[in-house]
Design a protein around this nucleic acid. Structure first.
Length: 170
DNA sequence: TTCATGATTGAC
DNA sequence: TCAATCATGAAA
């Protein structure tokens, strides 16, 4: 994940994601075809950003994945900081290298992602995602239920959270 | 128009 | 364990 702003460039390796699979997913904002102002960008083609405010104070960054008829997205839940770490510290008001980008709200603050990024085309601009630095096998990815889903029945246990297992290398 | 709540975080 | 804080969605 890369974000280039006037303040500088921040980048990081995406290490945790969750899938939200559209109108049949009770935990998805577009469940049953809901189409409010908030989810407008989820109805864009794949490759656009869906950024929304949660709990009145934290931004969450998603990548829209399908097409205008299938409002689905992937939530970026955590990254491993690579470039612009000083800038991340500054934005997060932290001095400690811990907890910099290990949460969906935290990484948005560290990367300067907010409402102005909602609906952006990730394929041609200052906010984009590059290919992984190397191939990642299935054995390196842990799959679990999604975090923080409390009012969507068994959808909380659907295997839609993906974590890159820790490695001391890269 | 009113009201409860959430794809979270950080402080006790 | 609990408050911060506001757009959304459902109820009225």
């Amino acid at each position: 994940l890369v974000h280039e702003t006037t303040d500088g460039k921040t980048s990081g390796l995406i290490t945790e994601t969750e899938a939200y699979i559209g109108i049949d997913d009770p935990a998805c904002h577009t469940f049953q075809g809901r189409n409010s102002e908030r989810v407008r960008s989820m109805y864009l083609d794949g490759g656009h950003a869906y950024v929304y405010l949660i709990y009145g104070m934290h931004w969450c960054f998603n990548v829209v994945t399908m097409d205008q008829n299938s409002p689905e997205a992937v939530l970026i839940r955590a990254v491993r900081p690579l470039e612009g770490i000083d800038l991340m510290f500054h934005r997060r008001h932290l001095a400690d290298t811990k907890n910099l980008t290990d949460g969906p709200g935290k990484l948005c603050e560290a990367f300067g992602i907010n409402r102005s990024c909602d609906g952006l085309d990730l394929t041609m601009g200052q906010l984009y995602i590059q290919a992984a630095p190397r191939y990642v096998s299935d054995e390196e990815v842990e799959v679990t239920g999604r975090i923080g889903i409390t009012s969507s029945g068994d959808a909380a246990h659907w295997p839609l959270r993906f974590l890159l297992l820790d490695r001391t290398s890269d």
